[in-house]
Design a protein around this nucleic acid. Sequence first.
DNA 1: TTATGTGAAAGGATTCACAGCC
DNA 2: GGCTGTGAATCCTTTCACATAA
Lengths: 217, 217
Amino acid sequence: LRPEVGAIREVVVARLPLYIRVLSRLEGEKEIVSSQELGYRLQLSAAQIRKDLSLFGKFGKQGRGYDVSGLLGALRRIMGLDREWAMVLVGVGRLGRAVLDYGRFTRAGFRIVAAFDIDQALVGKRIGGVLIQDVTELGDTVHSKGVRIGIVSAPASQAQGVVDSMVGVGIKAILNYAPVAARVPPGVRLRDIDPVMAAQSITFYLREESPLEELMP
Amino acid sequence: LRPEVGAIREVVVARLPLYIRVLSRLEGEKEIVSSQELGYRLQLSAAQIRKDLSLFGKFGKQGRGYDVSGLLGALRRIMGLDREWAMVLVGVGRLGRAVLDYGRFTRAGFRIVAAFDIDQALVGKRIGGVLIQDVTELGDTVHSKGVRIGIVSAPASQAQGVVDSMVGVGIKAILNYAPVAARVPPGVRLRDIDPVMAAQSITFYLREESPLEELMP
DNA sequence: TTATGTGAAAGGATTCACAGCC
DNA sequence: GGCTGTGAATCCTTTCACATAA
């Protein structure tokens, strides 16, 4: 078993942070956990969890289960979460300020090291301890601080442009808060954060009135 | 072809809001769009889009494509987005206030009609025009206003309790901003909104240092 | 006895490829 | 010529079920 990053499927990678989240909560509470209990807590099957973990190694002991803090540490290392990650944020409007004020990134090891905007009234100020710079300085900061993750909190109309600039200066991973389907070249990863889409994906199940057939052309 | 809500797969339902998002942006810009162009903009295959849409009816014209506003309207009706949805929010801390201030829900047809907290210092105040009530009044408000969607913005330690209360008073869909794997009974839909997990799911691809093999037990 | 790790089987989702229509 | 709608084929994901180990 020689796992290559490319051999691990994206669905699996997306589940590991879930495992990390429950394990963190379990740590201190109990030493050992079974795939069954993890599955119960995450509403996943026990087999799924065992198979996911088996892609990266043999972490469990038969007849017992998994060592909570051992597994947690291993998953953190696998995901690259045993270090701090620097991020830059572009777009210091209302949304951008909320993101800067959001404490959970810091607690999880993600540090926003600089923020950018085109509005000269904002440039030079600090929000949540972060200096706001002019967007033209994006490249310099990204290079000098070795940043690889960007947060787009610009308005929708400017989001693609911001994404392009980030890609241009070498950013490899983007969290996009703008409600647009941005395009990125291969090799750059994009994650959309859009609470409205989450809400919209749920109303389908609430509209048991008017059956679908009536809506069909 | 008689589509039943239950026959439509969840992956498909999750994509429809994406289609709605591009179509809204396309509306006014052009009249007709092909599955090819939609696929290009969303980084999906044209076949995928045609197959998804075909589950709900024949919306396109061969040789031409899809009528942008016609398709947009149809998808909105299918998703139940041709009406306003009332929501309640529980947990008016920093995060809750940011959600209340976030204008996009309103613009998308989701109205937060009431907010709840246990902190008596907050009860009676208004944020973004929304009255903050004591949590004990949750049931009354949900019933009198016919609310079916809840937003959990309480601290992690209280999130499951809030979810349970919401379920108890008849809420059927929950947007969970708390970083916990909450459990809901069958029939209640839950969507997690967790920017930190989004960030964590991306670092795996950034850590090409230290190959996975070295991390294996 | 209990619970992992894992091939084999089943079940879903996506893509192919083409008939049919504009 | 161009593009949809759709069975068939492929690919991917999840579950089953059991040998294996503590």
